[in-house]
Design a protein around this nucleic acid. Structure first.
Lengths: 206, 206
DNA sequence: CCCGGATGTTAGCGAGCGTTAACGTGATGA
DNA sequence: TCATCACGTTAACGCTCGCTAACATCCGGG
Protein backbone atom coordinates (compact mmCIF):
# COMPACT_ATOMS: atom_id res chain seq x y z
CA UNK A 1 0.00 0.00 0.00
CA UNK A 2 1.62 3.16 -1.19
CA UNK A 3 0.39 5.97 1.06
CA UNK A 4 0.96 8.64 -1.58
CA UNK A 5 -0.88 6.98 -4.44
CA UNK A 6 -3.57 4.91 -2.83
CA UNK A 7 -7.19 4.91 -3.95
CA UNK A 8 -8.12 7.63 -1.49
CA UNK A 9 -5.32 9.78 -2.86
CA UNK A 10 -6.73 9.33 -6.32
CA UNK A 11 -10.15 10.47 -5.17
CA UNK A 12 -8.68 13.54 -3.54
CA UNK A 13 -6.67 14.33 -6.64
CA UNK A 14 -9.82 14.15 -8.75
CA UNK A 15 -11.71 16.34 -6.31
CA UNK A 16 -8.93 18.93 -6.30
CA UNK A 17 -8.83 19.20 -10.07
CA UNK A 18 -12.61 19.15 -10.35
CA UNK A 19 -12.85 21.99 -7.84
CA UNK A 20 -10.35 24.04 -9.81
CA UNK A 21 -12.14 23.47 -13.10
CA UNK A 22 -15.61 24.08 -11.66
CA UNK A 23 -14.43 27.33 -10.13
CA UNK A 24 -12.81 28.43 -13.39
CA UNK A 25 -15.55 27.63 -15.86
CA UNK A 26 -18.62 26.72 -13.85
CA UNK A 27 -20.13 23.31 -13.13
CA UNK A 28 -22.01 23.08 -16.41
CA UNK A 29 -19.07 24.51 -18.30
CA UNK A 30 -16.75 21.59 -17.51
CA UNK A 31 -17.06 18.19 -19.13
CA UNK A 32 -16.15 14.91 -17.49
CA UNK A 33 -13.55 14.37 -20.19
CA UNK A 34 -11.75 17.50 -19.05
CA UNK A 35 -11.79 16.43 -15.44
CA UNK A 36 -10.43 13.05 -16.44
CA UNK A 37 -7.74 14.62 -18.59
CA UNK A 38 -6.68 16.81 -15.66
CA UNK A 39 -5.78 13.71 -13.64
CA UNK A 40 -4.29 11.70 -16.49
CA UNK A 41 -7.20 9.34 -17.16
CA UNK A 42 -9.83 9.88 -19.75
CA UNK A 43 -13.53 10.47 -19.45
CA UNK A 44 -15.58 7.63 -18.08
CA UNK A 45 -12.71 6.30 -15.99
CA UNK A 46 -13.92 8.72 -13.33
CA UNK A 47 -16.94 6.52 -12.75
CA UNK A 48 -14.71 4.00 -10.96
CA UNK A 49 -14.34 6.61 -8.21
CA UNK A 50 -17.55 8.65 -8.25
CA UNK A 51 -21.17 7.90 -9.02
CA UNK A 52 -21.33 10.85 -11.38
CA UNK A 53 -20.43 14.46 -11.98
CA UNK A 54 -23.07 15.59 -9.49
CA UNK A 55 -21.54 13.42 -6.81
CA UNK A 56 -18.21 15.19 -7.16
CA UNK A 57 -19.78 18.60 -6.67
CA UNK A 58 -21.83 17.34 -3.76
CA UNK A 59 -18.80 15.90 -2.01
CA UNK A 60 -16.90 19.14 -2.56
CA UNK A 61 -19.64 21.39 -1.20
CA UNK A 62 -20.56 19.21 1.74
CA UNK A 63 -16.88 18.82 2.57
CA UNK A 64 -16.12 22.52 2.58
CA UNK A 65 -19.24 23.44 4.53
CA UNK A 66 -18.51 20.80 7.10
CA UNK A 67 -14.90 21.82 7.49
CA UNK A 68 -15.81 25.48 7.87
CA UNK A 69 -18.37 24.71 10.54
CA UNK A 70 -16.18 22.27 12.44
CA UNK A 71 -13.18 24.58 12.43
CA UNK A 72 -15.36 27.53 13.42
CA UNK A 73 -16.92 25.72 16.35
CA UNK A 74 -13.52 24.53 17.50
CA UNK A 75 -12.06 28.02 17.46
CA UNK A 76 -15.01 29.49 19.34
CA UNK A 77 -14.92 26.75 21.95
CA UNK A 78 -11.25 27.35 22.59
CA UNK A 79 -11.74 30.65 24.37
CA UNK A 80 -14.14 32.43 26.70
CA UNK A 81 -13.31 35.86 25.35
CA UNK A 82 -15.78 36.84 22.60
CA UNK A 83 -13.32 39.29 21.10
CA UNK A 84 -10.69 36.57 20.81
CA UNK A 85 -13.29 34.18 19.41
CA UNK A 86 -14.33 36.69 16.75
CA UNK A 87 -10.74 37.31 15.80
CA UNK A 88 -10.16 33.57 15.56
CA UNK A 89 -13.20 33.17 13.32
CA UNK A 90 -11.97 35.94 11.06
CA UNK A 91 -8.44 34.55 10.86
CA UNK A 92 -9.72 31.06 10.17
CA UNK A 93 -12.06 32.18 7.43
CA UNK A 94 -9.30 34.24 5.83
CA UNK A 95 -6.92 31.28 5.85
CA UNK A 96 -9.59 29.23 4.20
CA UNK A 97 -10.37 31.84 1.55
CA UNK A 98 -6.73 32.28 0.65
CA UNK A 99 -5.68 28.63 0.71
CA UNK A 100 -8.77 27.08 -0.87
CA UNK A 101 -9.86 29.66 -3.39
CA UNK A 102 -11.65 27.26 -5.72
CA UNK A 103 -13.72 25.81 -2.91
CA UNK A 104 -14.68 29.22 -1.58
CA UNK A 105 -15.77 30.19 -5.07
CA UNK A 106 -17.86 27.07 -5.52
CA UNK A 107 -19.30 27.43 -2.06
CA UNK A 108 -21.57 30.35 -2.89
CA UNK A 109 -21.82 29.92 -6.65
CA UNK A 110 -22.81 26.37 -7.55
CA UNK A 111 -25.01 25.45 -4.62
CA UNK A 112 -28.17 25.26 -6.70
CA UNK A 113 -26.75 22.53 -8.94
CA UNK A 114 -27.11 19.99 -6.13
CA UNK A 115 -29.79 17.42 -5.57
CA UNK A 116 -32.46 18.54 -3.13
CA UNK A 117 -31.13 16.46 -0.24
CA UNK A 118 -27.50 17.51 -0.64
CA UNK A 119 -28.48 21.13 -1.07
CA UNK A 120 -30.48 21.00 2.11
CA UNK A 121 -27.55 19.51 4.00
CA UNK A 122 -25.12 22.12 2.72
CA UNK A 123 -27.52 24.93 3.52
CA UNK A 124 -27.97 23.59 7.03
CA UNK A 125 -24.22 23.47 7.59
CA UNK A 126 -23.83 26.97 6.18
CA UNK A 127 -26.61 28.29 8.39
CA UNK A 128 -25.05 26.80 11.50
CA UNK A 129 -21.73 28.38 10.56
CA UNK A 130 -23.41 31.75 10.17
CA UNK A 131 -25.13 31.27 13.53
CA UNK A 132 -21.76 30.62 15.14
CA UNK A 133 -20.54 33.96 13.82
CA UNK A 134 -23.74 35.83 14.69
CA UNK A 135 -23.59 34.58 18.26
CA UNK A 136 -20.05 35.78 18.74
CA UNK A 137 -20.68 39.10 16.97
CA UNK A 138 -23.67 39.83 19.19
CA UNK A 139 -21.63 39.16 22.30
CA UNK A 140 -18.90 41.52 21.13
CA UNK A 141 -21.33 44.17 19.88
CA UNK A 142 -24.48 43.90 22.02
CA UNK A 143 -25.88 47.15 20.61
CA UNK A 144 -26.34 45.54 17.22
CA UNK A 145 -29.71 43.98 16.46
CA UNK A 146 -30.02 40.39 15.31
CA UNK A 147 -30.72 41.49 11.75
CA UNK A 148 -27.81 43.88 11.71
CA UNK A 149 -25.46 41.24 13.02
CA UNK A 150 -26.60 38.69 10.47
CA UNK A 151 -26.29 41.10 7.56
CA UNK A 152 -22.90 42.24 8.82
CA UNK A 153 -21.67 38.66 9.02
CA UNK A 154 -22.71 38.02 5.44
CA UNK A 155 -21.02 41.25 4.42
CA UNK A 156 -17.79 40.19 6.11
CA UNK A 157 -17.97 36.86 4.30
CA UNK A 158 -18.28 38.76 1.05
CA UNK A 159 -15.37 40.95 2.03
CA UNK A 160 -13.08 38.05 2.85
CA UNK A 161 -14.25 35.90 -0.04
CA UNK A 162 -13.36 38.68 -2.46
CA UNK A 163 -9.81 37.34 -2.50
CA UNK A 164 -10.31 34.96 -5.43
CA UNK A 165 -11.52 37.83 -7.60
CA UNK A 166 -8.11 39.47 -7.50
CA UNK A 167 -6.73 36.95 -9.97
CA UNK A 168 -3.34 35.37 -9.35
CA UNK A 169 -1.56 38.39 -10.74
CA UNK A 170 1.74 39.74 -9.51
CA UNK A 171 -0.19 42.80 -8.41
CA UNK A 172 -1.51 41.03 -5.35
CA UNK A 173 0.07 41.35 -1.90
CA UNK A 174 1.81 38.27 -0.58
CA UNK A 175 -0.09 35.84 1.60
CA UNK A 176 0.80 37.29 4.98
CA UNK A 177 0.15 40.89 3.97
CA UNK A 178 -3.11 39.98 2.29
CA UNK A 179 -4.30 38.07 5.35
CA UNK A 180 -3.37 40.94 7.64
CA UNK A 181 -5.13 43.47 5.42
CA UNK A 182 -8.32 41.41 5.19
CA UNK A 183 -8.33 41.00 8.96
CA UNK A 184 -8.00 44.76 9.46
CA UNK A 185 -10.78 45.46 6.98
CA UNK A 186 -13.10 42.89 8.55
CA UNK A 187 -12.49 44.14 12.07
CA UNK A 188 -12.93 47.72 10.93
CA UNK A 189 -16.24 46.94 9.29
CA UNK A 190 -17.59 45.09 12.31
CA UNK A 191 -16.39 47.82 14.66
CA UNK A 192 -19.08 50.12 13.26
CA UNK A 193 -21.67 47.88 14.91
CA UNK A 194 -20.58 49.41 18.18
CA UNK A 195 -21.51 52.96 17.30
CA UNK A 196 -24.66 54.81 18.24
CA UNK A 197 -27.58 54.20 15.95
CA UNK A 198 -27.60 57.48 14.00
CA UNK A 199 -24.20 56.86 12.51
CA UNK A 200 -22.36 59.98 11.50
CA UNK A 201 -20.92 60.60 8.08
CA UNK A 202 -17.13 60.54 7.84
CA UNK A 203 -15.58 63.78 8.99
CA UNK A 204 -14.22 65.99 6.25
CA UNK A 205 -11.66 67.65 8.53
CA UNK A 206 -8.92 65.13 8.71
CA UNK B 1 -45.97 54.24 -30.86
CA UNK B 2 -46.75 53.00 -27.40
CA UNK B 3 -43.86 54.02 -25.14
CA UNK B 4 -44.56 51.27 -22.61
CA UNK B 5 -44.69 48.34 -25.01
CA UNK B 6 -42.52 49.28 -27.92
CA UNK B 7 -39.90 47.03 -29.45
CA UNK B 8 -37.19 48.39 -27.17
CA UNK B 9 -39.41 47.64 -24.20
CA UNK B 10 -39.64 44.07 -25.31
CA UNK B 11 -35.89 43.79 -25.49
CA UNK B 12 -35.53 45.24 -22.03
CA UNK B 13 -38.14 42.88 -20.69
CA UNK B 14 -36.26 39.92 -22.12
CA UNK B 15 -32.99 41.18 -20.72
CA UNK B 16 -34.52 41.63 -17.29
CA UNK B 17 -35.92 38.11 -17.16
CA UNK B 18 -32.77 36.62 -18.64
CA UNK B 19 -30.69 38.36 -15.98
CA UNK B 20 -32.90 36.99 -13.25
CA UNK B 21 -32.76 33.45 -14.60
CA UNK B 22 -29.02 33.55 -15.27
CA UNK B 23 -28.42 34.78 -11.73
CA UNK B 24 -30.63 32.07 -10.26
CA UNK B 25 -29.43 29.03 -12.15
CA UNK B 26 -26.33 30.09 -14.04
CA UNK B 27 -25.87 30.84 -17.72
CA UNK B 28 -25.51 27.22 -18.77
CA UNK B 29 -28.33 26.17 -16.45
CA UNK B 30 -30.99 28.18 -18.26
CA UNK B 31 -32.43 27.21 -21.63
CA UNK B 32 -33.71 29.59 -24.23
CA UNK B 33 -37.15 28.04 -23.86
CA UNK B 34 -37.25 29.13 -20.21
CA UNK B 35 -36.24 32.66 -21.07
CA UNK B 36 -38.91 32.78 -23.71
CA UNK B 37 -41.53 31.39 -21.34
CA UNK B 38 -40.63 34.06 -18.79
CA UNK B 39 -41.71 36.78 -21.22
CA UNK B 40 -44.72 34.97 -22.65
CA UNK B 41 -43.24 33.84 -25.94
CA UNK B 42 -41.71 30.48 -26.54
CA UNK B 43 -38.20 29.43 -27.39
CA UNK B 44 -36.89 30.52 -30.75
CA UNK B 45 -39.05 33.62 -30.78
CA UNK B 46 -36.21 35.27 -28.90
CA UNK B 47 -34.10 35.21 -32.04
CA UNK B 48 -36.21 38.04 -33.45
CA UNK B 49 -34.65 40.26 -30.79
CA UNK B 50 -31.19 38.81 -30.10
CA UNK B 51 -28.60 37.05 -32.19
CA UNK B 52 -28.35 34.28 -29.61
CA UNK B 53 -28.10 33.39 -25.97
CA UNK B 54 -24.53 34.62 -25.79
CA UNK B 55 -25.60 38.01 -27.12
CA UNK B 56 -28.05 38.44 -24.24
CA UNK B 57 -25.37 37.78 -21.65
CA UNK B 58 -22.93 40.04 -23.46
CA UNK B 59 -25.40 42.91 -23.58
CA UNK B 60 -26.19 42.44 -19.90
CA UNK B 61 -22.57 42.43 -18.76
CA UNK B 62 -21.41 45.25 -21.00
CA UNK B 63 -24.44 47.27 -19.97
CA UNK B 64 -23.91 46.90 -16.26
CA UNK B 65 -20.17 47.53 -16.45
CA UNK B 66 -20.74 50.61 -18.53
CA UNK B 67 -23.41 51.98 -16.25
CA UNK B 68 -21.30 51.40 -13.16
CA UNK B 69 -18.33 53.18 -14.68
CA UNK B 70 -20.35 56.07 -16.05
CA UNK B 71 -22.23 56.65 -12.83
CA UNK B 72 -19.02 56.35 -10.80
CA UNK B 73 -17.16 58.88 -12.93
CA UNK B 74 -20.08 61.26 -12.74
CA UNK B 75 -20.26 61.08 -8.98
CA UNK B 76 -16.52 61.61 -8.58
CA UNK B 77 -16.53 64.55 -10.97
CA UNK B 78 -19.34 66.24 -9.05
CA UNK B 79 -17.19 67.16 -6.07
CA UNK B 80 -13.66 68.21 -5.18
CA UNK B 81 -13.79 66.64 -1.74
CA UNK B 82 -12.31 63.11 -1.87
CA UNK B 83 -14.23 62.09 1.24
CA UNK B 84 -17.50 63.13 -0.35
CA UNK B 85 -16.51 61.40 -3.59
CA UNK B 86 -15.75 58.16 -1.77
CA UNK B 87 -19.04 58.34 0.07
CA UNK B 88 -20.84 58.95 -3.21
CA UNK B 89 -19.13 55.97 -4.80
CA UNK B 90 -20.12 53.78 -1.88
CA UNK B 91 -23.73 54.97 -1.90
CA UNK B 92 -23.99 54.52 -5.63
CA UNK B 93 -22.58 51.03 -5.59
CA UNK B 94 -24.91 50.08 -2.75
CA UNK B 95 -27.94 51.36 -4.63
CA UNK B 96 -26.86 49.34 -7.59
CA UNK B 97 -26.30 46.16 -5.58
CA UNK B 98 -29.67 46.43 -3.87
CA UNK B 99 -31.75 47.45 -6.89
CA UNK B 100 -30.12 45.25 -9.50
CA UNK B 101 -29.23 42.13 -7.61
CA UNK B 102 -29.27 39.79 -10.60
CA UNK B 103 -26.93 41.98 -12.59
CA UNK B 104 -24.50 42.33 -9.70
CA UNK B 105 -24.50 38.56 -9.34
CA UNK B 106 -23.84 38.00 -13.03
CA UNK B 107 -21.22 40.69 -13.06
CA UNK B 108 -18.59 38.67 -11.23
CA UNK B 109 -19.90 35.18 -11.90
CA UNK B 110 -20.50 34.61 -15.60
CA UNK B 111 -17.83 36.78 -17.12
CA UNK B 112 -15.88 33.85 -18.57
CA UNK B 113 -18.83 32.70 -20.68
CA UNK B 114 -18.35 35.64 -23.04
CA UNK B 115 -16.61 35.74 -26.40
CA UNK B 116 -13.03 36.95 -26.21
CA UNK B 117 -13.83 40.43 -27.52
CA UNK B 118 -16.79 41.04 -25.24
CA UNK B 119 -14.91 39.69 -22.25
CA UNK B 120 -12.03 42.04 -22.97
CA UNK B 121 -14.39 45.00 -23.18
CA UNK B 122 -16.14 44.14 -19.92
CA UNK B 123 -12.84 43.62 -18.14
CA UNK B 124 -11.61 46.97 -19.38
CA UNK B 125 -14.72 48.73 -18.09
CA UNK B 126 -14.44 46.94 -14.77
CA UNK B 127 -10.78 47.87 -14.47
CA UNK B 128 -11.49 51.52 -15.14
CA UNK B 129 -14.22 51.46 -12.50
CA UNK B 130 -11.80 49.98 -10.00
CA UNK B 131 -9.23 52.62 -10.90
CA UNK B 132 -11.80 55.32 -10.21
CA UNK B 133 -12.25 53.90 -6.73
CA UNK B 134 -8.55 53.35 -6.10
CA UNK B 135 -7.79 56.94 -7.04
CA UNK B 136 -10.33 58.31 -4.60
CA UNK B 137 -9.33 55.90 -1.85
CA UNK B 138 -5.69 56.85 -2.15
CA UNK B 139 -6.55 60.52 -1.87
CA UNK B 140 -8.60 59.90 1.25
CA UNK B 141 -6.09 57.48 2.78
CA UNK B 142 -2.65 58.51 1.48
CA UNK B 143 -0.90 56.18 3.94
CA UNK B 144 -2.24 53.14 2.09
CA UNK B 145 -0.08 51.63 -0.63
CA UNK B 146 -1.39 51.10 -4.12
CA UNK B 147 -1.71 47.37 -3.54
CA UNK B 148 -3.50 47.85 -0.25
CA UNK B 149 -5.92 50.30 -1.79
CA UNK B 150 -6.67 48.00 -4.70
CA UNK B 151 -7.24 44.97 -2.50
CA UNK B 152 -9.37 47.03 -0.14
CA UNK B 153 -11.54 48.25 -3.00
CA UNK B 154 -12.13 44.69 -4.15
CA UNK B 155 -12.93 43.72 -0.59
CA UNK B 156 -15.48 46.52 -0.30
CA UNK B 157 -17.05 45.38 -3.56
CA UNK B 158 -17.35 41.92 -2.07
CA UNK B 159 -18.83 43.38 1.09
CA UNK B 160 -21.47 45.39 -0.73
CA UNK B 161 -22.19 42.70 -3.29
CA UNK B 162 -22.95 40.26 -0.49
CA UNK B 163 -26.50 41.61 -0.44
CA UNK B 164 -27.90 39.12 -2.96
CA UNK B 165 -26.70 36.22 -0.81
CA UNK B 166 -29.12 37.14 1.93
CA UNK B 167 -32.04 35.71 -0.03
CA UNK B 168 -35.31 37.64 -0.26
CA UNK B 169 -36.42 36.40 3.14
CA UNK B 170 -38.40 38.43 5.61
CA UNK B 171 -35.35 38.29 7.85
CA UNK B 172 -33.63 41.00 5.85
CA UNK B 173 -33.66 44.66 6.88
CA UNK B 174 -35.65 47.00 4.70
CA UNK B 175 -33.98 48.85 1.89
CA UNK B 176 -33.06 52.02 3.73
CA UNK B 177 -31.70 50.22 6.79
CA UNK B 178 -29.76 47.79 4.66
CA UNK B 179 -28.22 50.57 2.61
CA UNK B 180 -27.27 52.48 5.73
CA UNK B 181 -25.74 49.41 7.32
CA UNK B 182 -23.71 48.53 4.24
CA UNK B 183 -22.45 52.09 4.05
CA UNK B 184 -21.34 52.00 7.68
CA UNK B 185 -19.58 48.68 7.19
CA UNK B 186 -17.83 49.84 4.03
CA UNK B 187 -16.67 53.09 5.60
CA UNK B 188 -15.54 51.25 8.70
CA UNK B 189 -13.50 48.80 6.68
CA UNK B 190 -11.81 51.50 4.63
CA UNK B 191 -11.12 53.59 7.73
CA UNK B 192 -8.57 51.01 8.82
CA UNK B 193 -6.42 52.11 5.88
CA UNK B 194 -5.70 55.26 7.86
CA UNK B 195 -4.11 53.51 10.81
CA UNK B 196 -0.44 53.03 11.45
CA UNK B 197 1.09 50.07 9.72
CA UNK B 198 1.43 47.67 12.67
CA UNK B 199 -2.30 47.49 13.18
CA UNK B 200 -3.29 46.70 16.71
CA UNK B 201 -5.56 43.85 17.67
CA UNK B 202 -9.02 44.84 18.91
CA UNK B 203 -8.99 45.90 22.54
CA UNK B 204 -10.43 43.37 24.95
CA UNK B 205 -11.45 45.98 27.54
CA UNK B 206 -14.65 47.39 26.12
C1' DC C 1 -57.21 46.16 -51.00
C1' DC C 2 -53.21 44.36 -50.41
C1' DC C 3 -48.19 44.62 -49.74
C1' DG C 4 -44.54 44.13 -46.48
C1' DG C 5 -42.36 44.30 -42.19
C1' DA C 6 -42.49 43.07 -37.35
C1' DT C 7 -43.23 39.34 -34.45
C1' DG C 8 -44.58 34.75 -33.35
C1' DT C 9 -45.22 29.61 -33.96
C1' DT C 10 -43.81 24.58 -34.59
C1' DA C 11 -40.67 21.01 -36.51
C1' DG C 12 -36.37 19.43 -36.77
C1' DC C 13 -31.26 19.31 -37.24
C1' DG C 14 -26.66 18.76 -35.34
C1' DA C 15 -23.53 18.95 -31.75
C1' DG C 16 -22.17 18.12 -27.09
C1' DC C 17 -22.45 15.77 -22.91
C1' DG C 18 -23.30 12.48 -19.06
C1' DT C 19 -23.63 7.88 -18.63
C1' DT C 20 -23.46 2.85 -19.53
C1' DA C 21 -21.67 -1.36 -21.73
C1' DA C 22 -18.25 -4.32 -22.94
C1' DC C 23 -13.77 -5.33 -22.75
C1' DG C 24 -8.49 -5.28 -21.34
C1' DT C 25 -4.70 -5.66 -18.00
C1' DG C 26 -1.77 -6.13 -14.30
C1' DA C 27 -1.19 -7.12 -9.31
C1' DT C 28 -2.67 -10.23 -5.46
C1' DG C 29 -3.24 -14.25 -2.97
C1' DA C 30 -5.16 -18.96 -2.08
C1' DT D 1 -2.08 -21.44 -11.95
C1' DC D 2 -5.79 -19.03 -12.13
C1' DA D 3 -9.83 -16.55 -10.07
C1' DT D 4 -10.48 -11.93 -8.48
C1' DC D 5 -10.36 -7.31 -7.98
C1' DA D 6 -8.94 -2.54 -8.95
C1' DC D 7 -8.58 0.47 -12.46
C1' DG D 8 -8.64 1.85 -17.16
C1' DT D 9 -9.90 1.89 -22.10
C1' DT D 10 -13.08 2.74 -26.32
C1' DA D 11 -17.69 2.66 -28.48
C1' DA D 12 -22.01 4.02 -28.39
C1' DC D 13 -26.62 5.43 -26.61
C1' DG D 14 -29.95 8.86 -25.44
C1' DC D 15 -31.06 13.21 -24.08
C1' DT D 16 -30.72 18.11 -23.95
C1' DC D 17 -30.06 22.35 -26.03
C1' DG D 18 -28.97 26.16 -29.13
C1' DC D 19 -30.25 27.42 -33.43
C1' DT D 20 -32.40 27.46 -38.23
C1' DA D 21 -36.18 26.77 -41.55
C1' DA D 22 -40.55 27.27 -42.94
C1' DC D 23 -44.77 28.93 -42.14
C1' DA D 24 -48.66 32.04 -39.67
C1' DT D 25 -50.68 36.50 -38.05
C1' DC D 26 -51.34 41.17 -37.20
C1' DC D 27 -51.20 45.84 -38.75
C1' DG D 28 -50.06 50.38 -40.81
C1' DG D 29 -49.70 52.99 -45.28
C1' DG D 30 -50.02 53.75 -50.31
Amino acid sequence: MNPTKTAGGRREQILREAARLFAERGFHGVGVDEIGAAVGISGPGLYRHFAGKDAMLAELLVGISDRLLTAGRMRVAETDDPVAALDALIRGHIDFAIDDRPLITLHDRELDRLRESDRKLVRQLQRQYVEEWVGVVRRVYPRATELEARAAVHAVFGLINSTPHLGARSSVPDRAAMAALLRRLALGALATLDDGLPWTAPRTDR
